[in-house]
Simulated assay, not measured.
Amino acid sequence: MTQSRPPLNAPHSTAQSAPGALPGTPLRSPADVLGTGVAFPIGVNPRGQLSMVSGERAVTQAILSLLMTARGQRVMRPEYGCRIHELVFAPGDATTLGLASYYVDEALRAWEPRIEVEQVQAQLDGQDTSRIVVDIRYRLKGNPEPRSLVFPFYRSL
């Protein structure tokens, strides 16, 4: 008895395809595109495993982790991180705010490929002049919806 085979161009699964995708290509969720990683701060879930985050939360946590890491802090990847930490003892003037914006923008463009940076603006906190508030405007690649994140940076402890 001979089995019939599907034509060579027939899809291999019954899943729907994304618009513009090849036939038979399954739809991808945001978690598939944006990834999944260990939650920050590191914790344990109710099943006793490391807590994980995915999708937009994974991107947000990756941005915060990047900005909180000083360049040179990672032994095997010394270029990773943000140079904003060089401004810890800098005066609270326009030059420092410009450098803070530049350093954050530079780090995001170099190390976070899942986003398109639209604007980075640093300003002194009106209530605490030792704190620089960095307002980051970005979009997730492939998503037109704008996002924002505020990163507080303390110049001196």
Score class of each variant (00 low, 15 high):
residue 52 M to C: 00
residue 56 E to T: 10
residue 61 Q to I: 09
residue 61 Q to R: 07
residue 124 L to I: 15
residue 147 R to T: 02
residue 50 L to P: 01
residue 47 R to G: 06
residue 137 R to A: 14
residue 41 P to M: 10
residue 151 F to Q: 06
residue 82 C to D: 02
residue 109 R to K: 15
residue 102 Y to G: 07
residue 154 Y to S: 06
residue 139 R to N: 08
residue 32 D to T: 10
residue 30 P to Y: 05
residue 105 D to P: 00
residue 50 L to I: 14
residue 72 G to I: 10
residue 21 A to P: 01
residue 149 L to R: 05
residue 103 Y to Q: 08
residue 28 R to T: 13
residue 122 A to K: 07
residue 140 L to M: 07
residue 69 T to Y: 04
residue 33 V to P: 01
residue 115 I to G: 01
residue 78 P to T: 10
residue 116 E to C: 01
residue 124 L to D: 05
residue 48 G to R: 09
residue 128 D to Q: 13
residue 40 F to C: 04
residue 44 V to G: 02
residue 36 T to G: 02
residue 96 T to I: 08
residue 58 A to T: 00
residue 102 Y to D: 11
residue 57 R to Y: 00
residue 39 A to H: 14
residue 84 I to F: 03
residue 113 P to K: 10
residue 102 Y to P: 00
residue 141 K to G: 01
residue 36 T to W: 01
residue 63 I to L: 09
residue 77 R to F: 11
residue 102 Y to T: 14
residue 53 V to E: 06
residue 137 R to H: 10
residue 25 T to P: 01
residue 102 Y to K: 13
residue 92 G to Q: 11
residue 69 T to C: 12
residue 46 P to V: 12
residue 148 S to M: 07
residue 68 M to A: 12
residue 147 R to H: 11
residue 101 S to Y: 05
residue 71 R to T: 15
residue 69 T to R: 06
residue 41 P to R: 09
residue 49 Q to C: 06
residue 58 A to H: 09
residue 85 H to N: 09
residue 155 R to N: 10
residue 46 P to T: 12
residue 103 Y to W: 12
residue 36 T to C: 09
residue 89 F to I: 11
residue 149 L to E: 05
residue 34 L to K: 01
residue 104 V to T: 14
residue 140 L to I: 15
residue 139 R to H: 11
residue 75 V to C: 09
residue 94 A to H: 07
residue 72 G to T: 11
residue 61 Q to P: 02
residue 51 S to C: 13
residue 137 R to W: 02
residue 18 A to I: 00
residue 29 S to K: 01
residue 43 G to E: 03
residue 120 V to K: 03
residue 60 T to M: 06
residue 62 A to C: 14
residue 66 L to E: 04
residue 30 P to R: 09
